[in-house]
Amino acid sequence: KFGRVHERAEGPAKILAIGTATPFHWVDQSSYPDYYFRVTNSDHLVDLKEKFRRICNRTMISKRHMFLTEEILQKNPNLCSHNEPSFDVRQDILVSEIPKLGKEAVLMAIDEWAQPKSKITHLVFCTRSGVDMPGADYQLIKLLGLSPSVQRVMMYQQGCFAGGTMLRLAKDLAENNKGARVLVVCAESSAIGFRGPSEDHPDNLIAQALFGDGAAALIIGSDPKMGLERPIFEIVTTAQTFVPNGDCHLALHLREMGLTFHCTKDVPPTIAKNVESCLIKAFEPLGISDWNSIFWILHPGGNAIVDQVESTLGLEPNKLQATRNILREYGNLSSACVLFILDEIRKKSGREGLKTSGDGLDLGVLLSFGPGLTIETVVLR
């Protein structure tokens, strides 16, 4: 008597548009150690500064975009301390800036989509910054002038794996609601975790050397309108798992001094060791076991992770080039990073006149991972 209210779509979910945005301000990685130790009044920690310089040199990052300028840091000195309470200051900045950054990426996506924004039916927003109620999803709806009846899902504090999570959720929403057009937004800022150095917490140096700011937005829907919408990728399958006891290797915690970062040297080999089982589960039903026969979007948690995944799986050097390019130009953008790589690989395919948006290949994989050593596996066509 009370059956399904919403009719299912006929076809699989497809990515119809991609937009990205970054803050205008950026830092050069080669000179960042001098800048970082100067603005945090830590130049007296000579040995720690040299250690940080070595870490920065190993990241293979060229530059990173950041909202925090020297002027902002001078006005808010607690942000430059390692342990002073600064959460309220971070909140005041990020509750406002995260939706604005997301808006810039959304406008780029809508411009490519070339359809009225009134056709957006759902919003899925993800960030690890600016936790608030009502959330960044609500603020973004107002900034864009979208209908208050847009169906919203707000996900805070997920971390680097969440780019894949957003695709998984959007696929379910698009395929189970005929005519749905799902706006996916990942907006991230390193301002939540920026803090001064400490000899007692070397993990913090890794975070300060890796993370950048950026937002990515996608429009996802099934059954694209012929002649009006141009699909870029099809989302074939999605899956999530985590490595048992992985939280002892990688975890982040909200504290009075901001978001703290805990990471062990076992993260790269542990991820590399567990990736292939995810690939087998995803691609065995499709008859694929040659990992060089697919295109790759791999989250660059750090250069060591990229190198070890490449080595463990025997990947050809060009397979992870898009990942390395984004890491070099932006650093680790947390949940937004794989979506930047997705954009990079389709643009490169277009520039080179390849037959598909995925490096000329039919199928590919998007792998994202993060806290708890959670792994998201997304098969794309």
Rank of each mutant, 00 (worst) to 15 (best):
303 N>W: 08
252 L>C: 01
56 C>R: 10
242 F>V: 13
142 K>E: 12
305 I>L: 10
113 W>R: 05
14 K>P: 07
142 K>V: 13
292 N>T: 05
9 A>P: 02
33 P>V: 07
16 L>Y: 01
251 A>E: 13
16 L>K: 01
73 L>C: 09
360 G>Q: 13
5 V>I: 11
122 H>S: 05
376 E>H: 01
5 V>N: 02
288 I>M: 07
314 G>E: 05
76 N>Y: 08
312 T>P: 09
372 G>H: 14
364 G>T: 00
333 L>M: 10
345 I>K: 00
6 H>T: 11
239 A>M: 15
325 N>L: 00
29 Q>L: 10
9 A>W: 01
73 L>D: 14
12 P>Y: 11
286 L>Y: 11
336 A>R: 11
360 G>N: 14
360 G>V: 05
351 R>L: 07
234 E>H: 00
333 L>N: 05
9 A>E: 02
76 N>E: 10
85 P>R: 06
100 K>Q: 05
310 E>N: 00
304 A>E: 13
279 L>E: 01
349 S>R: 10
35 Y>P: 04
359 D>S: 03
31 S>W: 05
229 E>K: 08
313 L>G: 05
131 V>W: 12
289 S>V: 08
309 V>I: 09
308 Q>T: 13
260 T>S: 14
356 T>K: 13
30 S>C: 07
266 D>A: 10
113 W>E: 04
109 A>P: 04
282 A>F: 00
145 G>S: 06
259 L>P: 15
363 L>W: 08
97 E>R: 05
263 C>A: 14
274 N>P: 02
333 L>S: 12
281 K>E: 11
333 L>I: 09
114 A>L: 01
380 L>D: 15
20 T>Q: 11
301 G>W: 11
370 G>C: 13
324 R>Q: 07
307 D>I: 01
136 A>M: 14
334 S>D: 11
366 L>F: 07
9 A>D: 07
360 G>P: 06
2 F>A: 04
297 I>C: 15
6 H>K: 10
256 E>K: 12
362 D>R: 00
234 E>K: 04
41 N>H: 09
243 V>D: 14
372 G>E: 06
149 S>E: 06
17 A>M: 05
247 D>G: 08
281 K>D: 12
304 A>D: 14
10 E>A: 13
4 R>E: 13
294 I>D: 15
266 D>W: 08
125 F>M: 11
262 H>S: 09
288 I>P: 11
294 I>T: 09
128 R>D: 11
23 P>I: 01
93 I>C: 12
362 D>C: 00
307 D>E: 10
295 F>P: 15
316 E>K: 06
319 K>S: 00
288 I>D: 00
74 Q>G: 10
318 N>R: 02
380 L>G: 15
136 A>K: 06
228 L>S: 07
365 V>M: 13
378 V>T: 15
87 F>E: 15
252 L>W: 13
87 F>D: 14
308 Q>K: 04
356 T>W: 06
369 F>Q: 15
128 R>E: 05
57 N>T: 09
337 C>F: 07
337 C>E: 14
32 Y>G: 06
75 K>A: 15
313 L>T: 06
329 E>N: 01
98 I>L: 13
364 G>H: 03
351 R>W: 06
266 D>K: 00
238 T>L: 11
343 D>Y: 02
54 R>P: 09
380 L>K: 15
290 D>C: 03
294 I>K: 07
315 L>S: 11
27 V>E: 12
71 E>W: 07
13 A>V: 01
146 L>A: 03
315 L>F: 00
50 E>V: 12
241 T>F: 12
235 I>G: 03
303 N>T: 06
20 T>I: 02
68 L>F: 04
131 V>E: 11
144 L>F: 08
121 T>M: 09
316 E>A: 11
277 S>Q: 13
15 I>A: 01
346 R>A: 07
325 N>K: 12
266 D>Q: 12
60 M>T: 03
324 R>S: 05
13 A>L: 02
350 G>A: 15
240 Q>C: 00
67 F>I: 13
268 P>G: 14
261 F>M: 12
261 F>S: 15
112 E>L: 05
290 D>Q: 02
253 H>C: 11
342 L>V: 02
71 E>V: 03
348 K>G: 08
305 I>S: 03
330 Y>H: 07
281 K>M: 07
246 G>K: 12
27 V>M: 00
21 A>T: 06
92 D>Q: 11
105 A>V: 08
327 L>W: 08
342 L>H: 07
59 T>I: 03
51 K>S: 05
279 L>G: 04
28 D>A: 06
15 I>K: 06
88 D>S: 11
100 K>P: 03
257 M>W: 04
299 H>C: 04
22 T>F: 10
8 R>S: 05
274 N>R: 08
16 L>A: 03
365 V>E: 15
289 S>N: 03
327 L>T: 04
86 S>D: 12
18 I>R: 03
325 N>F: 06
376 E>L: 01
248 C>E: 15
372 G>K: 15
238 T>G: 12
368 S>Q: 11
